[in-house]
Amino acid sequence: MSTASTDARNRQPIDVAAIREAARKLDDGAVPSGYQGNRQEIIEMLNAALATELVCALRYKRHYYTATGLVNESVKAEFLQHAQEEEEHAGRIAERIVQLNGEPDFNPSTISQRSHAEYDECTDIKGMIRANLIAERVAIESYRQMIERIGDSDPTTKHLLIDIMAVEEEHADDMKDLLD
């Protein structure tokens, strides 16, 4: 097999030898040197997203445990499901940071400062739902801006954020339905 093949769309040869050589340089983490994104900026954005997801998971968990009354059991279940999904988002973001040769920042002393969403200590169910809806809207807009900033420079991170943003939109829709 030849070390050069042809890309059908551009009809330009792909330099397989150069790709293989670059892939042997392991100091950039899992993503090879041909990566087009600004690693540091994207890692910083992802660490802010990580903090946001962790704060959201904590807020939803608090609301799950502190919401009272039999009439609120379905709302509590929604809070728990959302908390688990936020934790899953945090895990996916942390994995991507590591793939980019970065360090996921789980430092509890700075999470709330780095988070785009706020923590909430409401005690009434309507206040909890409203706080969660606002936080979801903050997350959605934050992800939209991150996706826009990343553009086509890092398709993997872009797609990750699009996937997470879609779930956040579902969460916002759920909270809006509960509020009505």
Rank of each mutant, 00 (worst) to 15 (best):
E44L: 10
D163P: 09
I140Y: 02
L133H: 01
R130K: 15
D7M: 03
I164M: 10
I134F: 10
H82T: 15
L46N: 03
P104S: 05
A135N: 05
I19F: 00
G127Q: 01
Y65E: 04
L50V: 00
A30G: 04
A48K: 03
T156S: 12
E86Q: 02
R130L: 13
R96L: 08
N101D: 00
N101W: 02
E78R: 14
E44N: 12
D124M: 10
I129H: 03
L46Q: 06
A48W: 00
Y35D: 06
A17V: 08
K61I: 13
R9K: 09
S2M: 07
G102P: 07
E169S: 11
M175D: 11
I125L: 06
D7K: 08
L178G: 03
A49Q: 08
C122T: 13
E118P: 04
R59D: 06
H116P: 00
L58Y: 03
M128F: 03
A17E: 03
T123H: 07
Q113N: 11
L178F: 03
D173T: 15
N38C: 14
P108D: 06
Y60Q: 03
A57G: 00
A49C: 10
I43S: 01
A172C: 11
R144P: 06
I97D: 04
Y65T: 12
Y119A: 15
R92I: 09
V98L: 04
R130I: 09
P108G: 04
F79S: 01
T52Y: 01
K76Y: 06
H89S: 02
S109M: 09
Y143N: 06
C122F: 08
A131I: 04
Q40G: 14
S2G: 00
A77L: 13
R39G: 12
S5C: 11
E168G: 04
R11M: 11
E169V: 14
D28T: 15
H159C: 11
E21N: 00
R130M: 12
I129T: 09
I140Q: 00
A172K: 05
H116T: 13
E53P: 07
R130E: 13
G151F: 01
M165I: 11
G127P: 06
K126N: 08
N101C: 11
Q99G: 12
S142K: 00
L179N: 05
R9M: 11
N47C: 06
D163Q: 12
H116Q: 13
M146Q: 08
E169I: 14
L46V: 10
A131H: 02
L46F: 05
N101E: 01
D124N: 13
Q40E: 13
K176Q: 15
E95M: 10
D105P: 10
G29A: 08
P155H: 08
Q145K: 13
R137M: 12
I150R: 05
I134M: 10
R9S: 05
D174W: 00
P104F: 02
P13M: 14
G34Y: 03
G151D: 14
E88R: 07
Q113S: 10
G102D: 05
E170W: 11
K61H: 12
D173L: 15
A117L: 07
V98G: 07
E169T: 12
E78A: 15
V98Q: 04
I162H: 03
I125H: 09
E73N: 13
Q81H: 15
D152R: 08
A94S: 02
E118C: 04
G29P: 01
A51T: 05
A77C: 12
A17Y: 06
L161C: 08
A67G: 02
N107K: 05
T66W: 06
